[in-house]
Simulated scan of single mutants.
Amino acid sequence: MIRLLTEQDRVQVMKYLQKDSFGGAFIIGNLLGFGLENHKDQRRCGDYYGYFSQGELIGVLPFYNMGSCIPVFEDEKEVVTSFADIMRMRQFQVLIGMKKFIKPLYDVVSNEKEIVSYQESSYFVNKHFSPLAIENTTFSDAREINNNDAVEFIRRAYREGFHQEHTPEETKKIIEQRNAEEEFLFLIVDGKIVAQAYIQAVTDKINQIGGVFTLEGERNKRYGKAIVSELCRRIIARGKIPTLSVRKDNTPAVKAYVTLGFSHHDDYLIVKCKV
């Protein structure tokens, strides 16, 4: 049986997701911060579908207002078929998660969705942190500096680094709709923002890093590596494990993260669809 989940399902959903805190990181983080009810003005709220077998939850399929679909499930053909039926009816921009969850669904729905890109990535976990610090650099949270400067840099980062266009209003929500643990950091040199990175998912065990971007003219100066290192330092100080995903063909980034102590945990997929 598959149905929409409500706040009454929260305990059962959390218990299920915590079986795989890495695979369910995005859902756990959004659930902790924003709950199971869909508040349309919150980009990280959405519609959560749950698949139940003999009363036990064995799969969760969320469609977030920001346009992402992040499924997790147990190895059940019945779950994939039911989830795919719903995915055919729903619009989403990004299908994202561990390959073991994404690939079976992609194989079913790809003929009916116009695929823009298919990105093979690695999910990295850092249990052997080796920090990096660069002199004459400082870090500031996006919520603590001039709002216009923060908004314009983030818009540029999404446009140039991730091929996404956001309005100023949407970008302000990216900054504002975060919990206290979800730091959005800028690296600043001589009063100028040159790089960004943020915590995109929070659970009781991990903080997942994302959005790493350095201005084109400031690359090859280790700024991206330094800002990820600073986030790792803060995450570990909270007693949690830093994680992130990185494209397998992004050799410079892979090498940089490995030198910081990251290692491969699982295969990861990011599939972008035309809406």
Score class of each variant (00 low, 15 high):
R43F: 11
R43D: 04
R44I: 03
C45Q: 10
D47K: 05
D47P: 02
F52Y: 08
Q54Y: 10
G55L: 08
G55V: 11
E56D: 14
L57I: 14
L57V: 07
G59W: 05
G59T: 06
V60Q: 06
P62H: 00
P62Y: 00
F63G: 05
Y64A: 02
N65D: 01
N65H: 05
N65F: 00
M66L: 13
M66V: 11
G67C: 00
C69S: 11
C69V: 00
I70D: 00
P71L: 02
P71T: 03
V72L: 08
V72Y: 08
E74I: 05
E74N: 09
E74A: 02
D75E: 11
E76P: 10
K77A: 15
K77H: 13
V80K: 09
T81I: 14
T81E: 13
S82T: 07
F83L: 06
R88C: 12
M89G: 14
M89C: 08
R90P: 07
Q93F: 12
L95I: 03
I96Q: 06
G97L: 00
G97H: 00
G97R: 00
M98Y: 08
M98W: 10
K99M: 06
K99S: 15
K100Y: 03
K100L: 03
F101T: 01
I102F: 03
K103L: 13
K103Y: 15
K103R: 10
P104S: 06
D107N: 07
V108W: 01
V108C: 06
V109D: 04
S110F: 01
N111W: 10
E112V: 01
E112N: 06
K113R: 10
I115H: 01
I115N: 01
I115G: 03
V116N: 04
Y118C: 04
Q119T: 06
Q119K: 10
E120F: 07
E120N: 08
S122W: 15
S122F: 12
F124E: 14
V125I: 09
N126L: 07
N126K: 04
K127Q: 15
K127D: 15
P131N: 01
L132F: 04
A133G: 00
A133Y: 13
I134W: 02
